[in-house]
Each structure stands twice: as structure tokens, then as C-alpha cells.
Design a protein around this nucleic acid. Structure first.
Length: 282
DNA sequence: AAGGTAACCTGACTGC
DNA sequence: TGCAGTCAGGTTACCT
């Protein structure tokens, strides 16, 4: 479900709805997610104030005085804030009850049919900045944030010199730049005219400059549009994203390329669909 | 050590 | 109506 824009949209709506809240209760379905649910840590969190909601790579970070509760939405996860009386639904796995400043209460519900997502706990004592939080969460969260001013074409160029693998799966790994998943990798490569199967180490600095710019612009436009909804993405208010209407190649196999009118093609890389224009991308 | 593959899951959709 | 096959926004353990 979520790449960086979708996660950012969820973070922003959670931040608004949970501001000033204090964790009051936690329930877990018991079903195995990607990682074991950190039950002990979450139980100890009860009573602590939620200080902030932020994002690192594709993780939603709920910040408490003692650490971060990191939520990953996997492919099909959703984090929504509901009234405490909202009845449970199928695939609800975690329910966090909050007391809000105005004497109100609400529940943050984590629902995930495929269970590729997870909740992990990062103790603040072992970590001092968000960069190291990412490193503790996994390989896919080790790269630079695309909106960090240090993310440039020059950086992509330098990091890619010894890479013979295709540029698209290399980008998606998250060890160089984080948050670029299947949709936005396809879109950004199309926007910068780079063939997704080209070896990462065989792309020039000038083209990496264009790619870095495209990545930032496309991610920002997607955030502004509330994210992409392919089938089921909703933000924490249950609202769907509108960026899907702006996809130039993703999910558009057979339709004419917006630039040269040749049909968009689909191929498989690392078991993922890649959409591209064989005329415009070299 | 880089790079490819299989695996983790459920649900929606297509075609016979 | 049903059944089989395909596909889906991600990540990582495990091969070569």
C-alpha cells in the first residue's frame, strides 16, 4: 500500500488527531505480523504522553519520552483513528487507546490483511537521532531521506559507480535513498528518461541530477494530492489519495505514452512489475 | 560481496 | 456459481 508519500500523509493526519494525547490502553490481536509485537514495551508505555508523530523512510514513528513505536504498513496496512466505540473489523491487529486533552478519547487502529507490516519498539536510550532509528529498523531505512538537502544527483552518481544491477531495483532497496517504492520508482525513471533496466553504474551525472529532481518533485506532488490509492490506501482519516490520476506510466500498460504515444510496456524486475516507455527511456 | 530468488499473507479480479 | 490462476503499494533470509 504505502510508499513515502502515503506514509507521510498518514503521519500528518495522525499528528493532527493525536496531538496532546496520552496512551491509555493497548490491545493486540495475537496474529503474527512481520515482527513480533513488542508487548512488554507497549505495556510499559501506558500513561506516557505522545510527544510527536514523525516519519523515517516508510516507518511511522510515534514518539514517547522513552522511545519510538515504529509502525510499518507493509503492502496492505492502514493506521486509522476512530472513536473508541468503533466496533472491531476483520484484520484489526493493534488498537491503541488515547486520552486527548479535551477529555475525549480515541483509538488508533492498525489493520493489515496481508500482515506484511509490523510494529517495532526502539528504546530512546540506545539511540540519539532519527538516522540511527532507521538503521535499527532495517536495511531499507538506512539511506538518505529524499527531502534532505544532501540528497542530490551527485550522491546517487557516487553511490552507484560500482553497481552493475539495474537502476530500478537498486533505487528501491532503500540503502541509498529511502521511500521510493514500485510506483514512484517507475514514475521518476520515466520523468528522467532513464530505462529501468539500465545498470545503475552506467548512468551519467547529468541524468542522476534529473533523477534526483524528479524523485523529489514526484514525491512532493503525491504528498500534496494525499498519496496514490491503487486499491485500498486511505489516510488516518479514511480518505483516499488522488495522485493515482497523475501516474504517467504506472498501471498504464498498453496506453499511449503521454510524450511519444508509443504503448507503455510492462516487464518484471525482481518479481515486481515495471512500467516504462521504450521510446522515451534509454 | 553483489545480485537474484523465494517466502511471508489475504483478497480482488479475470477467464474458463 | 465455482474454481484456478494472476496480481498487488514491501522487506528480508538465503542462495550463488
Amino acid at each position: 500500500m504505502p510508499e513515502l508519500p502515503e506514509v507521510e500523509v498518514v503521519v500528518q493526519s495522525l499528528r493532527g488527531q493525536l496531538a496532546g494525547g496520552r496512551l491509555a490502553a493497548a490491545r493486540f490481536s495475537g496474529k503474527r505480523l512481520r515482527h513480533a509485537f513488542p508487548k512488554q514495551a507497549v505495556d510499559r508505555l501506558i500513561g506516557e504522553p505522545l510527544q510527536n508523530v514523525t516519519r523515517r523512510a516508510k516507518f511511522v514513528l510515534l514518539e514517547f519520552p522513552s522511545g519510538w513505536l515504529a509502525i510499518h504498513l507493509g503492502m496492505s496496512g492502514a493506521a486509522q483513528v476512530c472513536d473508541s466505540t468503533t466496533p472491531p473489523e476483520k484484520h484489526d491487529h493493534v488498537r491503541l487507546g488515547f486520552h486527548l486533552p479535551n477529555q475525549q478519547t480515541c483509538d488508533l487502529i492498525y489493520n493489515d490483511p496481508r500482515r506484511f507490516g509490523s510494529l517495532q519498539w526502539i528504546e530512546k536510550s540506545q539511540v540519539n537521532d532519527l538516522q540511527s532509528v532507521g538503521a535499527l529498523l532495517g536495511e531499507s531505512a538506512t539511506g538518505i531521506e529524499p527531502f534532505d538537502p544532501h540528497f542530490t544527483g551527485q550522491l546517487l552518481f557516487e553511490k552507484s559507480r560500482s553497481i552493475r544491477a539495474a537502476i530500478k531495483p537498486w533505487l528501491m532497496q532503500g540503502s541509498t535513498v529511502v521511500g521510493v517504492g514500485n510506483i514512484y520508482a517507475c514514475e521518476a525513471l520515466y520523468a528522467s528518461g532513464i530505462h529501468p533496466a539500465r545498470a545503475a553504474g552506467a548512468v551519467s551525472l547529468a541524468r542522476y541530477d534529473r533523477l534526483a529532481t524528479s524523485i523529489r518533485e514526484i514525491l512532493q506532488s503525491a504528498i500534496d494530492a494525499g498519496g496514490s490509492t491503487i486499491r485500498d490506501f486511505v489516510n488516518a482519516d479514511g480518505v483516499r489519495g488522488r495522485y493515482g490520476q497523475s501516474h504517467q506510466v504506472y498501471g498504464r500498460e498498453g496506453t499511449p505514452c503521454p510524450t511519444c504515444k508509443r504503448p507503455i510496456r510492462r516487464m518484471i524486475q525482481q518479481q515486481r512489475s515495471t512500467f516504462y516507455c521504450y521510446g522515451c527511456q534509454r
